[in-house]
Amino acid sequence: MTDPARRDGADGPLVVRTPEELRRALADAGRVGLVPTMGALHGGHRSLMRLARERADTVVVSVFVNPLQFGPEEDLDQYPRDLPGDTRLCGEEGVDVVFAPETATMYPRPQMVTVDAGAMGERLEGASRPGHFTGVLTVVTKLFQLVRPDLAVFGAKDAQQIALVRRMVDDLDLPVEIVGAPTLREPDGLASSSRNVYLSEADRASALFLSRALRAGADAATGGTVAVREAARAVLDEAARATPPVELDYLALVDPATFADAADDHRGDAVLAVAARVGRTRLIDNVTVPLRT
């Protein structure tokens, strides 16, 4: 790296804040792998970094809480932020560059031109969080333009997000390979998430109903789409009576190419996705369900 004075410790990653610093850092980077994040890094992010490390000469982790993807009633101001901790974790995983721009750097003026997520972006998460995927795809496009990665790694927990990013890359002919990493789960089955820090002990016990519902649905795959939905729904009906209750936003079995509801005679892989609120915390999770018979 060209500016070692910007490193957080002798062996840590180079931390850059501006596009100019980023360009200098990547001047002789070889094959670049990007892991886009909003910080508050955890074990799930580590798995993304390791996958990028396997496939790239230089690994860049972006840390940016993107206001464009938050709605007016969402937790932008409360979203956890810990850049020193994030930088240490990146150093432990051999990350070369942390790109941590300020909001004014990414959006120096009101963003007039954005990336429309289309019909797929209006379903599930898009229906619950209007404009969310426009914000996601816009910031991802900006990061691709600034970092110019050869590949970018995204987690499968955000299944709709990675499907939309792949479609955007294909539709807009962006020269980036999109790599999906499996969802990392904690020992009790809860999907790793930056928002898990909000969960009380009681909240966490109720949150485990989400992964149980997904497992129940997947276990019912031989019965077809109706059986998958009914098995998952039965667990979530129980979850609604828990203390605290799990307040379901959606449960859907969808075609992974479009995120439209899977037809009753759907064959091949489908995505069983759930979103719910436990206490103050909104959580999402999903599994791939093979429907072969």
Results as ranks from 00 to 15, higher is better:
212 R>C: 00
246 V>P: 03
141 T>H: 13
251 L>I: 04
234 A>C: 04
146 L>N: 00
259 F>C: 02
229 R>P: 00
164 L>Q: 11
165 V>W: 08
257 A>W: 01
236 L>S: 06
243 T>H: 13
162 I>L: 15
210 L>Y: 01
190 L>T: 01
144 F>V: 03
238 E>Y: 02
137 L>M: 12
222 T>I: 03
198 Y>P: 01
211 S>Q: 13
205 A>D: 10
227 A>F: 10
229 R>F: 03
252 A>R: 14
228 V>N: 01
207 A>W: 01
186 E>C: 01
173 D>V: 12
234 A>G: 03
155 G>Q: 10
200 S>W: 02
208 L>A: 05
152 A>I: 07
169 V>K: 04
209 F>E: 03
196 N>Y: 05
190 L>W: 01
218 A>T: 11
173 D>S: 13
258 T>W: 07
144 F>I: 03
208 L>S: 02
242 A>R: 10
143 L>S: 05
151 L>N: 09
185 R>F: 06
247 E>K: 13
157 K>S: 09
182 P>M: 10
216 A>K: 03
243 T>C: 06
193 S>Q: 07
215 R>P: 00
186 E>P: 05
256 P>V: 05
165 V>T: 09
158 D>F: 04
222 T>Q: 15
238 E>S: 10
159 A>Y: 01
162 I>E: 07
140 V>R: 06
193 S>L: 04
223 G>I: 06
185 R>V: 02
167 R>L: 12
179 V>H: 10
204 R>Q: 10
186 E>D: 14
191 A>V: 02
221 A>L: 05
195 R>A: 08
199 L>Y: 07
145 Q>L: 14
261 D>G: 10
180 G>K: 10
242 A>Y: 05
160 Q>H: 07
187 P>G: 11
157 K>Y: 08
159 A>H: 04
141 T>W: 05
251 L>Y: 01
190 L>E: 02
257 A>S: 13
155 G>W: 08
147 V>A: 06
250 Y>T: 07
173 D>M: 13
148 R>V: 11
201 E>Y: 00
223 G>R: 09
176 V>K: 06
229 R>C: 12
182 P>N: 09
215 R>T: 12
213 A>G: 15
211 S>G: 04
188 D>V: 03
216 A>N: 05
250 Y>Q: 09
247 E>I: 10
255 D>Y: 01
149 P>Q: 10
259 F>L: 08
143 L>M: 14
203 D>Y: 07
165 V>I: 15
219 D>E: 15
247 E>S: 11
154 F>G: 12
151 L>P: 06
187 P>W: 12
244 P>L: 11
223 G>D: 05
160 Q>T: 05
254 V>G: 06
241 R>K: 13
244 P>W: 07
167 R>W: 03
181 A>Q: 15
230 E>Y: 00
257 A>G: 14
156 A>G: 00
184 L>Q: 13
195 R>Y: 05
141 T>S: 15
141 T>N: 14
